[in-house]
Design a protein around this nucleic acid. Structure first.
Lengths: 207, 207
DNA sequence: TTAAATACCATACATTTGTATGGTAAAATA
DNA sequence: TATTTTACCATACAAATGTATGGTATTTAA
């Protein structure tokens, strides 16, 4: 099943996943060809045949826009988890995806948002726990009191955000952790995004 | 914008929403005609024109399966929240949808799953809180230790499920609430489904 | 009562779409 | 070396698809 994909086959598969997530519609062969700059559909046709042969997709013959992704279970779209963030003390963020979570698409997932797995308990009073997946939107302006993800000295944290005159305060709900105060000009501070949702799958917790 | 729809127009619009949620693909005119038993596409064609005129959909001319739903914001489809369930003491379930949550259009909840908003704190040790949305799948066999939704004497509860010889035990994680023990033959007990996920939107929690 | 909107049917037609077939060149493999 | 796989191109064609046009009967609004 998990045969290896060539670079281009992988790109096309990724494009299918992206399109499904962003448009809710699978592209036609012509649209894929267009996207990759191919002069006709038959090139795409061949790549899809390869993908189907290797078990990654399933085509619904004769139907338009009917490419099924078999890597997902019937209802979930796999999305990469980009790293872990410490809700307590800062934790190093990983350069590549550390995992893949099957996000039920009930979860609000704006196109440019991404996922992080929370580690640590400092936000437990905000009902976010170690192991939870937070959905992070990088394109929103943070308001006071919102939970944000930030990078501080190459480590990522999940904290509540408060803007003061000349500084930014990142506080945990958990009193065990003291607020972090950063001067606004401090160079190695970077706001990553706002936590717009939390998701937790119960499937593993069977007894 | 919000002109009134006829009964059939409403049915077709609902069908479009359903299809998008269930298949992730919009149907073609022929498929819609088939579903409603029409003998040809032009009937559907007319209904869609009416829907477009009234502002509920937007058609992408010449493209197949390219019906846009304008009632949704770019990525979300409203789905009904069917009621509230008490995580603590039983709470009456409402006959109609009490609220609407915005699901993304890529939403592929299991077709027959539904959403419930949790009220009460008895599951707080299982990290489920008042206000959270639980995703309930009615078609799974519960295993011991899984969190289930059940109706007991016309009230719904969210509890951990344990099967004993002749009885079923529903326990809260919160020690404040004592386990409920039900004889297996007790008539007014009905298992509704298994909680497969928890989702919480942070969007309202701005400060 | 007259006009308009609704709800269906039928036919026709240009594109779109998936797919089958065949070809070339380069890279990977045996 | 010979062979297979990969990555593209071109052409052809039947079926699917959206859409335009015209028709009938019923209901609703003016």
């Amino acid at each position: 099943m998990a045969k290896e994909l060539t670079k281009i086959q992988r790109q096309i598969l990724d494009h299918l996943i992206d399109q499904k997530a962003a448009r809710g519609i699978q592209p036609t062969l012509a649209e894929i060809a267009d996207y990759f700059g191919y002069k006709n559909r038959s090139t795409v046709q061949q790549h899809l045949q390869a993908l189907e042969k290797k078990g990654f997709i399933k085509k619904n013959p004769k139907l338009s826009r009917a490419i099924e992704l078999t890597l997902e279970d019937k209802f979930f779209v796999p999305r990469p988890v980009l790293g872990e963030v410490a809700a307590g003390n800062p934790l190093t963020i990983y350069p590549d995806a550390i995992d893949t979570i099957e996000l039920p698409t009930i979860a609000r997932m704006p196109k440019d948002s991404f996922l992080l797995r929370v580690k640590g308990d400092s936000l437990k009073d905000a009902y976010i726990f170690s192991g939870d997946i937070v959905i992070v939107n990088p394109n929103l302006e943070p308001k006071n009191g919102q939970i944000v993800v930030a990078v501080l000295d190459d480590a990522a944290v999940v904290k509540k955000f408060y803007k003061k005159k000349n500084e930014i305060e990142l506080v945990s709900e958990n009193p065990e952790f003291k607020p972090i105060v950063i001067d606004k000009k401090y160079p190695s501070f970077k706001l990553i995004g706002i936590v717009v949702g939390v998701y937790r799958s119960m499937s593993k917790k069977a007894g």
